[in-house]
């Protein structure tokens, strides 16, 4: 760990001022501290923001607002989240371990960095960690890596379960800096690697995530999250699917499908959604729609299984949420 200065911000203004001077925000610390220990992250200044008034979770008729400092465990246990946005509660409960969920914040969850082990090993080449050094994973051990949204520069999978559910439910992220406030849809907030894999978020220097909004919609109540992984707990997804369906009079009126574990960012599946929209739920429909789930996939040496696994994961979760299993 490299030496750094540590301060605690008591107000949002104080935090933003420290952020403007280059301070890195620290909430749960479950990503940043690990990476600092491995010297992947070397901030010179760390600002503890846990005292800021950003912990609130509120649900109204227009939607759900989650404060950026709300803990994963608190959000997952919130009655309104569990009944009106079950995909979010399930994604949270299937994340990490109970101890980590107690510590980790929602804002931090969206800022967490990839589990690519080459990224986390400072002796390996990694364009995300050190632009221009090459991607060790591209021809290395890449069983857990992405098959969608990759580039020659980076094939690291995005690790968040929550972000997949938020993407499916069209969530919006609220940001603040000394220059003012702005809002960015989750879909635009997380960036594909392209030729600049070191840029992972649409976030500006000193900007702080203050809240996440999830708009209310008929489909959020009938939503769910499926996570497929090597062990039954405390492990990242090989594939996952967040599905939300609004079915009325045996017709799918709205459909939201996003997947995780397979892409460099949480991955929305518009072609699958399109196939579902206006159709009558059936076992065959789930399989037909899911057939498009891995379109455009480019597999690597050790993760060719993910394309078929993804189609099956989506089909299974469509059946779970939409019935007619």
């Amino acid at each position: 760990m490299h030496p750094f200065s540590f301060t605690r911000a008591r107000t949002i203004d104080a935090a933003l001022a420290a952020g403007a001077r280059g301070g890195r925000y620290l909430a749960g610390g479950t990503t940043l501290v690990d990476l600092m220990r491995e010297t992947v992250e070397r901030p010179s200044s760390v600002v503890d923001i846990n005292d800021l008034p950003l912990h609130e979770i509120s649900s109204t008729s227009s939607g759900l607002r989650i404060g950026a400092l709300a803990r994963m465990s608190d959000v997952g246990a919130h009655p309104a989240v569990r009944t009106r946005y079950p995909a979010i509660a399930q994604a949270l409960e299937l994340s990490a371990s109970a101890q980590l969920r107690n510590a980790a914040s929602i804002g931090g969850n969206l800022m967490q960095r990839t589990r690519c082990t080459y990224f986390r090993d400072v002796s390996a080449s990694c364009n995300k960690r050190e632009p221009g050094t090459g991607c060790a994973a591209l021809h290395g051990h890449n069983r857990t890596h992405a098959i969608l949204g990759t580039s020659e520069a980076c094939v690291a999978a995005h690790p968040s379960d929550l972000a997949v559910a938020l993407l499916a439910l069209d969530a919006v992220i609220h940001l603040r800096s000394r220059a003012g406030a702005r809002s960015v849809p989750v879909a635009n907030f997380l960036l594909r690697p392209g030729t600049t894999p070191e840029r992972e978020h649409d976030i500006r220097p000193g900007e702080l995530i203050t809240a996440v909004d999830v708009p209310a919609a008929a489909h959020t109540r009938t939503s769910g999250y499926l996570k497929v992984r090597d062990r039954q707990s405390y492990e990242f997804a090989l594939t996952s699917a967040a599905v939300a369906l609004h079915i009325e009079e045996d017709v799918i009126r709205s459909a939201r499908v996003a997947v995780g574990g397979v892409a460099t960012v949480p991955w929305r599946l518009p072609a699958v959604e399109h196939r579902l929209l206006g159709a009558r739920p059936s076992r065959q429909l789930w399989v037909d729609a899911a057939a498009k789930a891995a379109d455009g996939a480019r597999s690597l040496r050790h993760n060719a299984f993910k394309a078929e696994l993804l189609r099956r994961t989506v089909a299974r979760q469509l059946g779970t949420v939409g019935g007619r299993k």
């Binding site: 060790a136 062990r231 405390y234």
Partner: peptide, 30 residues
């Protein structure tokens, strides 16, 4: 039977999962 594997990158002999987050052992749920 199901999980443990110290994975070597044979290009340079590096172990790529040398940590408890990536070398999987059974957890209680398993």
């Amino acid at each position: 039977a199901l999980l443990e594997h110290s994975v070597t990158d044979h290009r340079d002999g590096r172990l790529v999962n040398a940590g408890m987050a990536d070398y999987l052992v059974p957890v209680n749920a398993d």
